[in-house]
């Protein structure tokens, strides 16, 4: 059986990876992206790293093979090393932000369905009951079209990180979260 391979473009260099190697590569780059989240040159450093990964993998790939596996990728990443951020430059510190920028998310902890209303309430800084009543009214007045809006939001909105002292996630929100993550997984495999 032909094993599934994924073609990845690493800063302009095209390489094929098997599934395990591709997942490892994505995890490495995600980690780097996360480490560089505050870095103004994030995109450029990531491009440099992608190119380094491509060169290291190609160097290790036996000539008779096209697809990079973990056997090549692991030593390549080992040699490149995880991303280390240099110490902060003595540039003038940017003024501390008065409040963290609020982002529209869904909140699993204490949710009824998936946490869209709860997230919306947090975003708008209003009582969640109010949001739920409005959502229910809309559900009746739109003859059910609200369900589609809810489903779309559920699939699109990121899950908020649990806040300290948050209630445990209920059964339905847990199921819903599982479902959303499953669908997203399917979608990203289809896109990649």
């Amino acid at each position: 059986m032909q094993r599934l391979s994924i073609t990845a473009s690493l800063n302009g260099t095209t390489l094929q990876f098997d599934e395990a190697a591709f997942a490892r590569l994505e995890a490495y780059l995600d980690d780097a992206r996360h480490t560089l989240a505050e870095n103004p040159d994030q995109a450029e450093i990531l491009a440099d790293l992608e190119q380094a990964v491509a060169e290291q993998c190609r160097k290790r790939l036996p000539t008779e093979r096209q697809v990079v596996t973990l056997a090549e990728l692991e030593p390549a990443l080992e040699e490149i090393g995880s991303v280390q951020v240099p110490d902060a430059t003595p540039e003038p510190e940017p003024a501390p932000r008065s409040s963290p920028r609020r982002q529209l998310e869904q909140v699993s902890e204490g949710a009824l369905i998936s946490g869209v209303c709860l997230g919306l309430a947090r975003y708008l800084d209003v009582d969640v009951t109010l949001v739920r009543i409005v959502a229910l009214l809309l559900l009746f007045f739109t003859g059910g079209a609200m369900i589609i809006v809810y489903l779309i939001l559920m699939l699109l909105l990121p899950f908020a990180a649990p806040q300290p002292g948050a209630p445990p996630i209920g059964k339905l929100p847990a199921k819903s979260r599982e479902f959303v993550e499953f669908v997203r997984g399917k979608l990203s495999t289809a896109a990649g």
């Binding site: 560089l36 450093i45 440099d48 790293l49 380094a52 040699e79 490149i80 090393g81 991303v83 280390q84």
Partner: peptide, 8 residues
């Protein structure tokens, strides 16, 4: 050192 350190 390593590329992961040097590029940043």
């Amino acid at each position: 050192t390593q590329e992961g350190t040097l590029y940043p």
